[in-house]
Design a binder for these strands. Structure first.
Length: 479
RNA sequence: CCGGGUAUAGCGGAGUUGGUACCGCGCCACAUUUGGGAUGUGGAGAUCGUGCGUUCGAGUCGCACUACUCGGACCA
């Protein structure tokens, strides 16, 4: 049987070519397919199911914090987009435009939304009149379009799926609290659902969202030690409210501008899952978003009673609330083992005649390959316990990668040298000057990832210019 | 957007000095199998990425375009 190994579609080793490994996993785990337009990807059922699980869990969290879902138009008139100067400068270069309606050229062209701040503002201006109308806590699940020059599955699409929360508040303090609250929901989601450790921090002015006063970010480290921005939460102050003339009458009977936030995560999260947890056998999915948590594989399924026994176990696990697939197709067991490993199913349950005799089954963990014989009595609890253990194991492994590849540097020279050797995150002191940030990019090839909330005192002077330091900053090469 | 590479059946490849295409896997049928990608026999599947051009004749030569891919620049 081993001789047939070469007949199987292989995944490039990540050590040999990480980018190629990533592309192979996306295609071979059947997450994605290409369409005929560059950067426009097809989310296949297995890939989309991951997104559905992410959506469901996040949406529950949003609802618990009293957010409401809405749906706004996909087209934005050019004049509306241009109302906030920084915002339009940030997004106009990558907009796609609709210029014809039917056979007629339009009087004004419409941008296909790259993000919906302007639409939300236009709407909020109509519906917010009194302090009693606040806060407004809206969220939208939709796709957005940005005409990217280069594209890669999940990492950079021209059209991608996301959620964008847009909220309005009576005071700056309330808006700031909302920015932090959603930021924390993202960080918790990464840890508790995706098993991905994050660095929580604030973006520098250079890196923050076009039009925002402050941008908070969760930064993740991939297996190749490059950074991926996992989600952002923005505080807008009242800048947009002023630009869009949104006002409300306060309890003091005076007219005020409300304060605003926006926050979002996208299908890019899936890229993070792949590159944090995956290995040379393919995808490794964290159990809480895995479309299939347990795959049940009958062994010697032609034999009397085997299928029925497998069906019974699968039914019991489903009844216990688990996502289960039983594969009774006529492929050989070995083929199925390899197939579901490539697809990253966290746990495999094998059940054959010998097991049935002993009232047991075989459980095999995807993350470690560890195999154990487990009694069928109480199998539901055993499986749940093991899925939790897998989650913890994945998190611990990713946390180790993050920790081992984050290091302090005292000078630009040191950042340059260490970054070339090992990548990862370099942490240094920084004066707060954009010029130093630009030099860091030009000479060491890294951008500032964030100013971590948890600051460390590494010294008194900026690693670039030697002037008095204001913050400790993380630097890295980002996707 | 800049630079390198690639495009032949679902996938991976071969295709000579230009003559309408071959192999392995996969797919379909049947039989034997079934605890790590099973075996045999038979069968189906391609206007060679798209468009122009050269030629009696183009998978093969030329030009353009598109897409993929790697690197860089740009960008949330």
């Amino acid at each position: 049987m081993a001789q047939n190994k070469k007949q199987v579609e292989q995944i490039t080793d990540m050590e040999a070519d990480f980018a190629q490994w990533y592309t192979d996993v996306c295609k071979k785990a059947e997450l994605i397919d290409y369409s005929s337009i560059k950067g426009m990807f097809i989310y296949r059922p297995y890939g989309y199911a991951i997104w559905e699980n992410i959506q469901r869990i996040l949406d529950d969290a949003f609802k618990k914090t009293r957010h409401e879902n809405v749906y706004l138009p996909m087209l934005i008139p050019e004049s509306l987009l241009q109302k906030e100067k920084d915002h339009v400068e940030g997004f106009a270069p990558e907009c796609a435009w609709v210029t014809y309606g039917g056979g007629d050229k339009l009087e004004e062209r419409y941008c296909i939304r790259p993000t919906s701040e302007t639409l939300f503002c236009e709407h909020y201006a109509n519906i917010i009149h009194s302090h009693r109308d606040l806060p407004k806590l809206y969220n939208q699940w939709c796709s957005v379009l940005r005409w990217e020059k280069t594209s890669r599955p999940f990492l950079r699409h021209r059209e991608f799926l996301w959620q964008e929360g847009h909220t309005m508040h009576a005071t700056a303090q309330q808006a700031m609290a909302e920015t932090e609250r959603m930021f924390n929901i993202y960080a918790d989601f990464y840890k508790n659902v995706l098993a991905i450790p994050v660095v929580k921090g604030r973006k520098t002015d250079k890196e923050k969202f076009s039009g925002a006063e402050a941008t908070y970010t969760v930064e993740c480290m991939m297996h190749d030690r490059k950074a991926l921005q996992g989600g952002t939460s923005h505080y807008f102050g009242d800048g947009f409210a002023r630009a869009f003339d949104i006002t409300f009458t306060g309890s003091d009977n005076q007219l005020h501008h409300p304060f605003q936030t926006s926050w979002g995560v996208s299908t890019r999260m899936i890229a993070g899952i792949i590159m944090v947890h995956g290995d040379n056998n393919g995808l490794v999915l964290p159990p809480r978003v895995a479309p299939i948590q347990v795959v049940v594989i009958p062994v010697a399924q032609h034999k009397q009673g085997v299928l029925a026994a497998n069906q019974a176990v699968a039914d019991r696990l489903r009844a216990a609330g688990l996502r289960v697939r039983m594969d009774d197709s006529d492929q050989s067991p070995g083929w199925k083992f390899a197939e579901y490993e490539m697809k990253g199913v966290p746990l495999r349950l094998e059940l054959g005649p010998k097991d049935i005799e002993k009232n047991q089954c075989v459980l095999v963990r995807r993350d470690s390959g560890e195999k154990s014989f487990v009694c069928l009595d109480g199998i539901e609890e055993a499986v749940k316990t093991m899925l939790d253990a897998i989650h913890e194991g994945l998190y611990a492994k990713a946390a180790r990668n993050l920790e081992e590849n984050t290091y302090a540097c005292a000078s630009l020279e040191e950042v340059k040298e260490k970054m070339a050797q090992r990548g990862g995150f370099a942490k240094t002191m920084w004066c707060g000057d954009e010029a130093c940030e630009i030099r860091m990019k030009e000479e060491a090839g890294v951008s500032s990832r964030c100013i971590p909330l948890e600051q460390e005192h590494l010294g008194d002077t900026c690693a670039v210019c030697g002037k008095s330091a204001k913050h400790m900053v993380y630097w890295g090469v980002a996707y």
